[in-house]
Design a protein around this nucleic acid. Structure first.
Length: 228
DNA sequence: AATTAGCCCAACCGCATTCGA
DNA sequence: TTCGAATGCGGTTGGGCTAAT
């Protein structure tokens, strides 16, 4: 039996009040992020640590970009989703100021429907056969982005997500995905938040098994070896 | 004006992964 | 190497808001 993440009877649930927000902001400003388990008690909040973390990451972080998604952001989400599937945190990592929750919600409420209306299966980014017409479907797929989605009509780049998980697939499948990403002309580098960059650099120095293939010092965009 | 339906988003839940003793 | 604790992640839900009837 798994232990609950916190003592539920002592925790508040539901929407956060302004006072709670302010307490959390003040605490993190003073002590920094981390130690989420002990944070609520230390900050005088009757919330579980996970809840505090979520509130901070999704709502209170000062670097968050609020408001509607731009067309460029939407295009990028579609491309990244075609490649990565529902890995919202990875996708959000490529969108400065956006959170995984925000991207996930936007996908489910806007982009999904948009793709469906275009006759594209949002799960695998394939043209739905029942909608398929003899016209050039590549055009419709390409127009959903700003036009850089080259190869969008190439079956390689439109494999079903259920069996095209690029990060867990076999090596041969991975090669396909890598070539697909090249077709998509994606620069799949990981953007590291400036605040944590120095920590990352220190850690990477110590970790010779780093998944990053090149020295990251002075480079905010280390390339994931998987996609090089 | 009241009710209903649909949409959107913040927050919760449980599982997976990572970390450290 | 193992195991428990802490953290991260993605799926799901609930409630507020708005448009339609």
């Amino acid at each position: 039996m798994r232990k609950p993440c916190c003592d539920k009877k002592d925790t508040t649930k539901g929407a956060w009040s302004k006072q709670e927000d302010q307490r959390l902001i003040d605490y993190i400003k003073t002590h920094g992020e981390g130690c989420w388990r002990s944070l609520p008690k230390a900050a005088g909040l009757h919330r579980c640590g996970k809840s505090c973390r979520l509130r901070w990451i999704n709502y209170l972080r000062p670097d968050l970009k609020r408001g509607n998604f731009g067309q460029d952001e939407e295009d990028l989400i579609i491309k990244l989703h075609a490649l990565l599937g529902n890995r919202w945190s990875l996708i959000a990592g490529r969108l400065p100021g956006r959170t995984d929750n925000e991207v996930k919600n936007y996908w489910n409420s806007h982009i999904r429907k948009k793709l469906i209306n275009m006759g594209i299966d949002p799960n695998n980014h394939r043209v739905n056969q029942s909608f398929a017409a003899p016209l050039n479907r590549c055009a419709s797929a390409a127009t959903m982005s700003s036009g850089s989605m080259t190869g969008a009509c190439d079956n390689k780049s439109l494999k079903p997500s259920a069996d095209n998980d690029p990060l867990s697939d076999s090596a041969s499948g991975l090669e396909d995905e890598i070539s697909a990403s090249l077709d998509l002309n994606l620069d799949l580098t990981i953007a590291i938040p400036a605040s944590s960059l120095t920590d990352v650099i220190d850690k990477k120095r110590q970790d010779t098994k780093s998944i990053f293939s090149r020295e990251v010092e002075g480079d905010a965009n280390p390339t994931l070896i998987l996609f090089r």
